[in-house]
């Protein structure tokens, strides 16, 4: 076992800011949706819009970081060990079986994480951003006389945005639970807070393969 610097400073800043924003957007968003009441509709709208803009700025920085550091390659999906990872979660974990993949600095995501986070990055977040922007600005085009951009009704936009919100809410629940399935219950949480995590030094062939693939 060796203590490794897994999560860089920006990465942790990005992760926790994103987490806070998603929770806050969910709180204010579901209030706008009429499902809960907390701040009051007017405040909820103001806060939701402000948080949304902050989120956009964060996304811009995150994209820049992912490309300049080559970290985006962490999310390249693989089928290798995918089934093994599933089997671990549905049976191995109860038998104290070892994790099917080893976490390293250069390959910190297991195959399911790769798939899910990639889906978040290229599907869910873009859909939420696009529908969110349309939600915010959907009538301004009409105001400026660009008839072709007119949208008859908010309903379609709102439905897409709501579907995404429900998905994200479910994701957050699963995510918060699954971080307890690391080496110890709190090892993943500690790692995302401090950046450092105890990693096994022994390299399996599978891992070597991943390392080669990412760098």
């Amino acid at each position: 076992m060796k203590k490794e610097f897994v999560y860089k400073r920006f990465e942790r800043f990005w992760h926790w800011t994103q987490a806070a924003l998603i929770l806050f957007l969910a709180l204010t968003g579901f209030e706008i949706h009429g499902a809960i009441s907390f701040f009051g509709f007017e405040q909820a709208v103001t806060f939701h819009r402000t948080a949304a803009i902050m989120f956009l700025v964060l996304i811009a920085f995150a994209i820049f970081w992912h490309f300049t550091t080559d970290e985006w390659k962490q999310y390249l999906p693989t089928r290798k060990h995918l089934r093994a990872q599933f089997e671990y979660y549905i049976s191995g974990i109860f038998r104290n079986a070892p994790h099917p993949t080893k976490k390293t600095v250069l390959s910190k995501l297991n195959p399911i994480q790769k798939l899910v986070y990639l889906a978040l990055k290229i599907l869910v977040i873009p859909v939420m951003v696009a529908s969110g922007l349309l939600y915010m600005f959907y009538r301004y085009p009409q105001k400026q006389g660009i008839g072709s951009l007119n949208i008859d009704s908010l309903e379609k936009i709102a439905v897409v945005h709501t579907v995404g919100a429900f998905f994200l809410a479910a994701f957050v629940i699963a995510h918060i639970y699954l971080i307890t399935t690391g080496r110890t219950v709190t090892s993943n949480l500690k790692a995302m807070i401090t950046g450092f995590e105890e990693l096994e030094t022994e390299h399996t062939p599978a891992e070597v393969h991943h390392t080669a693939g990412t760098k």
Binding site: G34, E155, T162
Partner: peptide, 11 residues
């Protein structure tokens, strides 16, 4: 569709 009032029942 009005936010806060309306929702899609199946969603």
């Amino acid at each position: 569709y009005m936010p806060g009032r309306d929702y899609n029942a199946s969603v």
